[in-house]
Design a protein around this nucleic acid. Sequence first.
DNA 1: ATCGAGCATCAGATCTCCTTATCCAGTCCA
DNA 2: TGGACTGGATAAGGAGATCTGATGCTCGAT
Lengths: 303, 303
Amino acid sequence: MLDLRRLEILARFAARGTITATAADLGYSPSAVSQQLATLEREAGIALIERTARRASLTDAGRELAGHAARILDAVESAESRMRARAGTVGGRVAVSCIPALAPALAPRLAELQRVHPELTVVAHETGSANAAAAVLDRRYDLAVIDDWSAHPPADGTGLAVHRLRREDIVLAVPAGHPLAGHPGPATAARLRQIVADRTWLCAPVGQLSRAAGDRHLASVDATPSRRWEFEGLHVLAALVAADAGVAFLPAGMAEEQPGVTGLRTAPRMRRTLLALTRSTTRDDPAVAVCLRAARQALGDGR
Amino acid sequence: MLDLRRLEILARFAARGTITATAADLGYSPSAVSQQLATLEREAGIALIERTARRASLTDAGRELAGHAARILDAVESAESRMRARAGTVGGRVAVSCIPALAPALAPRLAELQRVHPELTVVAHETGSANAAAAVLDRRYDLAVIDDWSAHPPADGTGLAVHRLRREDIVLAVPAGHPLAGHPGPATAARLRQIVADRTWLCAPVGQLSRAAGDRHLASVDATPSRRWEFEGLHVLAALVAADAGVAFLPAGMAEEQPGVTGLRTAPRMRRTLLALTRSTTRDDPAVAVCLRAARQALGDGR
DNA sequence: ATCGAGCATCAGATCTCCTTATCCAGTCCA
DNA sequence: TGGACTGGATAAGGAGATCTGATGCTCGAT
């Protein structure tokens, strides 16, 4: 009978592509991974891996078996979650990912969990929203807090459970001294076109969801920034606006909290949604549930 | 992570009910089973087994986990079959069950397989048709050859693949010296009513499918045997008819082969269907496929 | 040409798991 | 009532699996 741990190694290898990375992910030595994959090939009775001296890649059979492995591991994880739910024990290791901007708000809540549930180990990382879904499905994280800048955030899908934490309005952040700050009407298309012509436009680097959403909005009102500066991190953008370095789109809460910044409602309205992602196989796991609840308390809008 | 072998032990325990029987099924000592189940409980973090001194039975959690285990093991077996199909190798162990009457015809074909495919091990048993489906689903057998005496044989169902091998007419077998043997018209209702009044009715014991089907037929033509003898095995019944001990329903082929017996067509027509059962998870396994092909050649009607 | 990344293989230490032996608690039966 | 039997748990020991660390190989990049 095929061995579950070997199947897990194969699935991880399919996701990562090299034996060394697979070993690092799983906490084994590359040697162990190499041996286990060799054993799995013997058990399966067919070549799963194409070996060159420097590179190992999956054969067709290997790819197919990795697919089966993913489904099998899902079923096992699901069964484990159900048992933990029955036992009602909060324990084990939960890997959490959070976008950097929200980490300061989330971390204390998670730290508190460790106090309430001594058996629980939370491992938290900061990562962007872009690949979070894949990372959760890949079991690199069990819970990921991300933001979604599109009008219609994703819903539960293949293996992924999506939990809406909060909706936030996006505002045009201008320095408190700016003429528009005195007339706090909405940032209409005309106003936007004018301001991007006058002032430096501050935004996230290409590839970030907030950048794409902001660019879409500007394009929709036919506003083309005359000068762009790119910075990583919404808090950095907020500080730059306060320092009169330019203007930017920011979440309303963040603009309010930043002294020296005034936020103007956008028209048409622009929003982002804070989401938490889990695997549907861990839906029943109490450990994941308490982490999700902590995220709701730290970041949710109370619903 | 839950261990696959332990899950298999749990699933088997759920099917058998005692640790000793589980161990016997899997070829372990009871001690090993006991230890593995204890380990599984520790891993699952919840009691799976209710232990009294003399009896071990599943808790609710244990029953649920056994259900998950069955699905997981199905997925694993399916993956294994797919890999074997890709490799195209006929090997491993195939457990075959066959109803006693057909075993003499099937066995030589299976023996030949062992010659053609040295890597293949076939383990054959004779069992009745009644519990064959459950035994196949339970992995006690990989292939079961059974007969079905109902008008509408079962089709593929939950996890079971049904392969039709042959349909056979059922005839009324009378001794060659009997008056009806000279007038080989069909055994109509009237003739049946008369003959069961005159002669001893030979049939299989209660519980056999052939017995139930025969009784149904007799009842449908309102014929009540005046005297019954019950014997196990259709070949035995054929020999008894030849020895002028009575009359019986027999498959046409069996009646023809038996010297001293004449078969009369039944009206309405009565038939049995020879079926082979496999798990749908082993549909792709070449080893099961060659055994099924052997059964078709030995017992099928060439379609 | 040299270096480094990635992988395979080997030897040894550790750990897992199975078996045998023994014990315990009910149940059956005389 | 008291053995014999059945079903299960536990302890000890050995066989086998698996991990690590060391070593060597190949290929591509500097």
